[in-house]
Design a protein around this nucleic acid. Structure first.
Lengths: 196, 196
DNA sequence: GTCTATAACTCGATAGAC
DNA sequence: GTCTATCGAGTTATAGAC
């Protein structure tokens, strides 16, 4: 593993745990077991390293959403409900959504661009699946664009409630409630898949 | 206005805008136009002042929720939908929920206690209104405890999406979608009320 | 009760040896 | 390409005059 890779991996972990502003170069270097010179040589600044790390985390998160929402097994409703009910690292939060509450992230062009682009893509994936589910009569009627943001918001807000509470229960209640509201018919099981 | 009041008011504003960790005593003192000595005399520490400010903000937010959710005008469904659709300072975010993403807040006993207690109370208010709405057949059937967290999460997540996007649209879509999913019958208007 | 001065520390970034 | 030493600014908190 090269110094670059070690730095990016350490920055990903720390930014997921603590956000951008609260993650100092010092802590990244300690975890990566790399000297300060390497970081500034390869990435130029804290922001440069953070952008590389965030880009990778966002790509990973997006890929997980795509696997669920574009799956060719099961109907559209199950894919949408599956997105709500996937196993997540509830107490850590979403590595993407987490960045939205950091003023320094919104003030940075490179970081806020990744943030916007990632949410935009998940929104599109959700909209498509929801439109298909509504057309098939599996999901309650409604504007797919609205419902897509409702689903996104339930997940992101679930993280907020869980962190506030210090436990996963509020997250689980929130997604369970949303799944119940979305379905036209209440058939039992919903697909669970392991991911963050 | 006493020095204490000026300090608390300034801290409330800054913590709403930037959170706890990113709000330094220096910035609070500048905005309050008060010397450093006053702050440490009255509140002992940054955390002490922050707790006083957060307590006040949380009480204000809770009072607004109570006005909507315990109103005796309109049916229970309109109160729940009203809570979703109130006019809010979408780009600033929720002065309470904002704190949940700050690691320093969760590490502080006094601050995290206020956070947990406030969400718990809003959750109770929502649960009661939802249970009444379900019993009256105005809201879709479901576990009121689950739906209460769904509604809370839509609002908190809507803030996250709006901040990420830099505009209020994702928030508005999310709450509109949730309101549509909650109602058993789709009658037009929903109550709007001016508040944060 | 409020002020200024200053302590002890951490921040992000740079310099220059190797 | 990686290291250590150091810079200047900003952090929370304390000391002591008034």
């Amino acid at each position: 593993m090269t110094s670059q890779d070690r730095l990016v991996a350490a920055a990903q972990e720390l930014m997921w745990e603590r956000g951008f502003a609260a993650t100092s170069p010092r802590k990244i270097l300690d975890r990566a077991e790399v000297g300060q010179g390497s970081m500034y040589h390869h990435f130029g600044s804290k922001e440069g390293l953070a952008a590389a790390a965030f880009e990778r985390s966002a790509a990973e998160t997006l890929a997980r959403a795509e696997v669920i929402l574009r799956s060719d097994e099961g109907d559209a409703a199950s894919r949408v409900v599956g997105y709500l009910l996937v196993q997540r690292e509830v107490l850590l939060g979403c590595p993407v959504g987490r960045m939205a509450s950091d003023p320094d992230v919104l003030a940075s062009d490179s970081l806020s661009t990744i943030l916007r682009a990632t949410f935009a893509r998940v929104r599109t994936l959700l909209s498509e699946a929801i439109a298909a589910g509504v057309a098939a009569g599996e999901l309650r009627d409604g504007d797919p664009a609205d419902i897509a943001d409702t689903v996104l918001a339930v997940v992101q807000g679930g993280y907020v409630l869980a962190r506030a509470e210090g436990g996963a229960e509020p997250f689980n209640r929130a997604v369970r409630g949303a799944a119940a509201l979305l379905r036209t018919r209440t058939d039992g099981g919903a697909g669970d898949r392991a991911t963050r």
